[in-house]
Amino acid sequence: MSDVLLEVDDLRTYFALPHGELRAVDGVSFRLEAGRTLGVVGESGSGKSVLARSIIGLLPAGFARRPAGRILFAGRDLRQVPESEMRRIRGREIAMIFQDPLTSLNPVMTIGRQIVQVLRQHTDLSTAQAKVRAVELLAEVGIPDPGQRVHEYAHRMSGGMRQRVVIAIALACNPRLLIADEPTTALDVTVQAQILDLLRHLQDRHRMAMILITHNLGVVAEMCDEVAVMYAGRMVEQASVADVLGAPRMRYTQALLESVPRLDSASHVRLPVIPGQPPNLIAPPPGCRFAPRCGHRLARCDKEAPSETDLGAGHRFSCWNPVEEVIHGR
């Protein structure tokens, strides 16, 4: 039985800019099952954050066109849901955490009050009950001495503790989907390891699906079941984490993996580079968007956008000249 929680179909989010229409997300489709984690990886400007904000309906007013396509969450198209209902869904059923915990928290309100506010908004708890629950939530995300810390302000806490508070707020109402946009990018590596452990532990416990947006392929390897690679507004490859990291087919995925400096690679070895930079999304290349930087480009790649190849088992990619298949077990 397929237990699809979120199904995104041909999503397009364009921004109206003075000198043209910027195609931040341009035809993205994927599915996410309950309790699973999808990693969305890509470099700056690949559209991964705009994708997340399109799903949860938090695009900047003014510039953004209403997204085209379908966003089916638990059977309902979120694009058709009125804003009043969307406000109920956000926080209650879909929660989001951002990169910088300090700017996500209100600097002039104690963290306890911020949690109580969310609980009062979305549940039937009384203020007194919500206060008790706030302390429980802080304990659950591993904040020592939660009964005291509930009265603290965000600026008095370390980066790791702040991100724990943000996670506590996000999980206050037991959402079915958590969207985490670079949740550990601002943190030190030893703190990052602890926050990743915490997220995984809480996810198992609450049976929550997660979309984890990151540029860090190591974080993906540790956290995700499936991975989607984005480049210039498109999803160029999707597969299980083992296939994306171990047997990528799309040339950009391969190049991205090779350019990461690893702990087990030798010193003073030249890193394979991806020349040039991502295309302008107001006037993207007509064919494959990666073609101008690709070392395996064919004449066809410049003219014609690659169609999607479906290898089965959830592995899909778009490339005219893909990496040859790796025999598993080698």
Binding site: G160, T190, Q192, A193, L217, R262
Partner: peptide, 24 residues
């Protein structure tokens, strides 16, 4: 601890690391 904290590119569900330093 630093080295053990760096996520590696090998997909695996890392379990709790007993010898690692905790806290900040």
């Amino acid at each position: 601890t630093l080295l053990a904290s760096v996520p590696s590119l090998v997909p695996r569900r890392r379990e709790e690391r007993p010898t690692m330093a905790r806290g900040e």
